[in-house]
Write a protein that binds this DNA or RNA. Structure first.
Lengths: 186, 186
DNA sequence: CTGACATTTTGACTTTTGTCAAGGCTAGTT
DNA sequence: AACTAGCCTTGACAAAAGTCAAAATGTCAG
């Protein structure tokens, strides 16, 4: 997996633009549990997961609530904070040894200024982000605990292996006990 | 409320760009129940609500499920369909007599080509859309039926007046009966 | 004003999920 | 092997919300 792969499914931009953008990317070899973003701080980077996976979560009333899992080939950041430049309420960490590329907020803005074409790339990332969120929301709206688990198994089976029962349960919006019972009856 | 208001909170663009964009806007005087987008069709327009309000919903298993309410000053479209150019699964209709401005997908793309600056405007609309969705998702994740209703009352009191119990109940992800009981105890 | 129809509320009961507590399993350490 | 800590499962019970049905209320055309 090389840097340019990052662009593959995004859009066609000129060689110059691409090279400039790539020059701003920083490669991160992350161990399991590496923190990409930390709650309380303003999100600094937009990450691309070349290999590995990550989990976004926040703490509320002493509970650790997973809001999303991200896999290879996806972009991830604490989007709310990244957009608003206000402190993030979520923390993002790798679920395993991962290879990441990241670009800082400021460099990204510089890219936009220099090459408005890149606005389009970012727009498309945002669109993907949005669609993923919308789909998750709608899917979770009707389904029972059991159906939500089955859907996760089908859509992101890798998560079932990588994440703990606690992470999965909070992501699927049920208690650990309910998840445990659901799993027992498959 | 005039066309330029639409830009007020968005960003500064040059007079030329603004005028070109405005020239592409179409004004719609909509009666209550006017359909902005229809399930099964590809979303054609991005709407701006100058006055009034709208409801997005879809039908599943014979139930009418409200996914969002939009108020004055907000943009609205069947975003998933608008982005992917695939048939929409949602329908959007006005909840009351409304004044709308809309721009077609093609005109918007033309704007982007001619004035890359406008990509930024659209990006910001997307960002707002994203943040609203994320907030709604997180808020609905912890709260009881009662708390979800109280929060809606606080955040969008106008909706409580305009929408029917059925619309509100499906939006808050509870049955009509539960909502009725919640309201009885306030 | 009245009747017809749609919407909302209320009641009785069921189902789903959550809570609390106990017990089991596994991996790492001594 | 025994001990510990963390994680997961199971059971008994409680709480929240859903379902179905009936009654009350609202809306509106005639």
């Amino acid at each position: 997996m090389t840097k340019p792969t990052l662009f593959e499914n995004i859009t066609e931009v000129s060689e110059d633009v691409r090279n400039f953008f790539i020059s701003k990317l920083e490669e991160i070899q992350a161990e399991k549990g590496y923190k990409l973003e930390t709650a309380g701080e303003v999100s600094k980077y937009l990450y691309y997961i070349a290999e590995g996976s990550a989990r976004s979560f926040y703490i509320r009333e002493n509970r650790d609530i997973t809001v999303s899992f991200s896999l290879e080939g996806e972009f991830v950041t604490a989007m709310h904070s990244f957009i608003t430049r206000s402190p993030s309420y979520e923390t993002i960490e790798t679920l395993e040894k991962s290879l990441l590329y990241r670009i800082s907020y400021n460099d990204l803005q510089e890219c936009f200024k220099k090459f408005p074409d890149l606005e389009r790339v970012y727009r498309m990332i945002l669109e993907k982000y949005y669609i993923a969120l919308e789909e998750q929301m709608i899917f979770s709206k009707f389904k029972s605990a059991r159906e939500r688990y089955l859907e996760l198994m089908e859509k992101k089976p890798k998560i079932i292996q990588r994440a703990s029962v606690g992470h999965i349960a909070s992501f699927l919006d049920m208690t650990i006990e309910t998840l445990s019972r659901v799993r027992a009856k498959i």
